[in-house]
Structures are given as C-alpha cells and as structure tokens.
Amino acid sequence: MIAPLAKAQTSLRDSGRSEELLFWLLLAPALLMVAALLLAPLTWLALQSVWENGFTLENYRRLVVEPLYARSFALTFRLSLEMSAVTLLLGYPVAYAAAHLSSRWRVLVLGLVVVPFWTSVLVRSYAWLVLLQRTGVVNKMLQALGLTNAPVMLVNNEIGVTIAMAHILLPFMVLPLFAAMEKIPEELIRAAASLGGGPLYTFRRVYLPLSMPGVIAGSVLVFVLSLGFYVTPELLGGGRTLLVSMLISRNIQLYDHWGAASAISVALLACVLAILALARTLAPSAWSAEDR
C-alpha cells in the first residue's frame, strides 16, 4: 500500500526538481544578457567615476561644489516634472476616449497614439524644429490669425523642448493610463450614477481614484524618461537648456573627461532608482498585478 504512494511522491519531487531546472535554463539567456550588457557596463561606469590613477571622490566633490551641476540637475528635474504634468493633462482625455469608445474607434485612437513610435526620435525632433522655427508653419499661422505681429521664439529655448518632448513622450503616458482605465468596470460608474453621483462627483470620487495606478505609472515613466532625454533638447534647446544628459555628453565629447561623465551618470541613476522606490512605496498597486 505504502510503496506506490512513496513512489508517486518521489516522482512528484523529481518532476518538481526537473521543472525547476527547466525554469532556470529558460531564464539563462536573458539573465546572461542582462549581466553582460547592463550590469557589467554599470559596474565599469561606477568604477570609472571613482578611479583616476587611484581611488578618488574628486568627480563627486565637483558635482556638489560647482553650481553649474546643481543648476543643471534642478533644470532637468523641473523639466521632467513639467513633462509628466503636460503629458498627463494631454494624455488623460485621449486615454479616456480610447478606453470608452467602441472597439473600432479604439483601434484608431490607439493607432494614432502608437504610430509616432515607429518614427525615430531624431526625425520627429527635426520635424518639430522645422514646424516651430521663425518662418515655420506654426509662426506663419499665428501671424496670419493676427495673434502676433512678429515671429514668436518657439525653438532654441525651453518652450520648443517642452513641445517636442511632450509629443514624443505622450504614448508613454497614454498607454499605462489606458491600461488602468480599461480595467475600471462600467458597472462601478453606473452604480455611482444610480446612487446619486453626478458626472463630476463620480469622476472625482470613483473614476479618478481608480485610474490612479495608471496616472502614477505613466507619470513615473515619463519623468524617468525625461531625466535622460538627450536628442530632442539638444536639437530644440539651442544650447540654452543644459540638461544633465548634455553635461554627460559634453564632458566626453569636449573635455574627454570620462570620470566626470561617469560620476554624473551614476548620480542620475541613483536619482532614478530613488524615485522608482518612492513611487513604489507611495502606490504599491501601480506595480503589482493583483488588484481589486
């Protein structure tokens, strides 16, 4: 009686063990890739930032002491916050429309959101440069409408950077918002209405709180992507908006100072990780699959 049972248990344990082995085998290529292409360079970067003919914290000391760096970090953070806010305001109605339209229209709206993804950031940035320049379409239209007499400075400053970056980053806001909104059961909205909640009240007390996971995920994503944005601000900022990413590239291209560039990169990475950790503690639901 006992023997077959014991045998069954053994084979169950065996199959469990081989399943585990298979699990790791399947994971191995991805793990190796991450280790070789991400962890190794990062370690190298971190070492480089503190090693110039011996251990030194000089690169980090300069980050703290020189006001140029503090200003650039402050500008980068402010711009990134603005990007989160702008894309949230623009993206929320788009995501709402996509989540509540009939399936045919939903495909169209999401398609329009995603199509720009297929064009390179460089091309889109140059396109904005053309549109926003002194003699560009936008300025001509503003003058034709009589809103302004002289061309408005829309490029080579922060306005241009904001407009172009908002356009490029919008999908990263819309898609998480859409994912969160799509999960909100229609019945809850009906329930709120039947219980006396007018459209605004229902939005404020039911819809908005339930879409918060998407708001947080989208905002963090856009914020973190903005922190490291390079091509667009370089092209449309005209050298006036010196972001952290440009400091890194300048330290390498102009001064051939890899140590300083590495130190800035490590500092930026630390900021990003801190923000992700903060977002995770503030809104655990945005990160876990289980909810409701």
Binding site: P185, E187, A191, V206
Partner: peptide, 12 residues
Amino acid sequence: GVVFQNYALFPH
C-alpha cells in the same frame, strides 16, 4: 437604489 449583479462595490 440599485443593487447590481456583481455588487459593484467601490474597491478603493
């Protein structure tokens, strides 16, 4: 007052 099939309680 409406009672829905799946209760429709507000999860938050």
